[in-house]
Design a protein around this nucleic acid. Structure first.
Length: 375
DNA sequence: GGTTATACCATTCATAGTTG
DNA sequence: CAACTATGAATGGTATAACC
């Protein structure tokens, strides 16, 4: 599938914003599972859209935070790729079906049938897609008599490899005889993202469209722009003779809350700025995790030693940059010891020293690019 | 000891709810 | 009623407790 020149330009303009070339970008994506698995999910949507359009099926995309991804003939669809650990070639196919935010404990983390889209459209590894009506999705009770909340949808959600729900386009009221499957693609369709595609499949077209679709803002603004800050921080540290390693030998909590460790053992958490909290003079930074609720979601004072705030190009106002003698067109870095972050007032109530979920600082009252702090 | 079930996780943005 | 706090949101994965 040809990528329209205007779409390719849009994509290249995005790469310029984060100052990375396409080869490095391919490698970067292929090394970050939390990014490429998101791209895999949205690339599946792009793939499914184009297979439907090629067959003259009208399909509409529903953006936003919704259990519905697509609509065909007024039937709502939720698209999912396989959950690899619950998929055994030739035997079964499994999908992850939990809610990934909120309390994240049962029963709230499970779907009830009436909460789900009309149909699950699940990617099958070799034979097309599973199209299963909501009322036939297996429940916890059907998977095992031992499970509580038997009325909730199973997670993982299992299907036989040769399930009767394979390619049931008839249920969507469309006439498709040649069932589309994901297949090996020619080199001309996989030339920009060879490394990423070796991990997730699909094609350059599917990946580029998944990234540039503004409805998938989490891919670009959160996952890519957010994580590429770590990439730039790593590179700048290297040019200052500082070696950063992945946390591996820390406790479970440490491995989760720390982005990099120095050879000395000093732990660093890398953050970007938060758009909605920042203006020309005041910059805002969120310092909390992405899941759960307080206090679980908050960082503790003992979780890391330094916070490194990575400031995107052209964020600092030109006047401020001039005054501070920094180049606003570059990435800039503010490195602070965790002691500078404010203690959460409810720490006593919660029985540990927590830090507040965000903080503000004046752009001209902090020091920039002080990598010597990490030596 | 292998398997399954549960809780918790990455990225930042958006907004509802609460407080002063 | 502005400022701040808490919560939920997409993609789908891992660590470990609990189980047989």
């Amino acid at each position: 599938m040809e990528i329209a020149p205007s779409d390719f330009k849009k994509f290249n303009d995005l790469l310029k914003i984060v100052k990375i070339n396409i080869e490095d970008f391919d490698e970067f994506l292929s090394l970050n599972p939390h990014i490429y698995r998101s791209i895999r999910g949205h690339a599946f949507e792009v793939w499914f859209d184009r297979e439907m359009k090629e067959r003259n099926v009208a399909i509409t995309s529903v953006g936003g935070d919704n259990v519905v991804d697509r609509v065909i003939n007024k039937k709502t669809l939720q698209l999912k790729t396989t959950y690899i650990k619950a998929t055994i070639a030739g035997k079964m196919v499994g999908y992850r079906m939990h809610k990934t935010h909120g309390a994240e404990v049962k029963p709230y983390c499970y779907y009830k049938k009436n909460e789900f889209a009309d149909f699950l459209v699940g990617l099958h590894p070799t034979d097309g897609v599973i199209i299963c009506p909501r009322q036939y999705l297996p429940t916890r009770g059907e998977v095992s008599k031992k499970l509580d909340y038997p009325e909730c949808l199973a997670d993982p959600l299992p299907f036989d490899w040769n399930t009767k729900w394979l390619n049931r386009y008839d249920l969507l009221g469309v006439d498709i005889k040649d069932y589309p499957t994901i297949v090996e693609h020619s080199r001309s369709e996989t030339k920009y993202f060879p490394k990423l595609i070796s991990k997730i499949g699909f094609t350059d077209f599917d990946i580029i469209h998944a990234i540039i679709d503004e409805k998938n803002f989490r891919i670009w603004f959160q996952l890519i722009v957010g994580t590429i800050r770590e990439f730039h921080f790593y590179k700048f540290a290297q040019t200052h003779g500082i070696n950063l390693s992945q946390p591996k030998k820390l406790s479970t909590r440490g491995n989760q809350k720390v982005d990099y460790v120095l050879d000395s053992g000093t732990r660093i958490q890398v953050k970007g700025l938060t758009k909605g909290m920042s203006s020309d003079k005041i910059l805002g930074c969120e310092t909390q995790g992405s899941h759960g609720r307080v206090p679980n979601r908050l960082y503790q004072k003992t979780d890391f030693d330094f916070i490194a705030i990575v400031i995107d190009p052209n964020t600092i106002h030109v006047d401020t940059a001039k005054k501070l003698n920094i180049i606003t067109e570059d990435y800039n870095f503010v490195i602070l010891p965790i002691s500078k972050l404010h203690k959460h007032p409810r720490s006593k109530e919660w029985g540990a020293e927590y830090i507040k979920s965000s903080f503000l600082f004046k752009a001209d009252e902090v020091e920039y690019n002080r990598f010597e702090l990490l030596k």
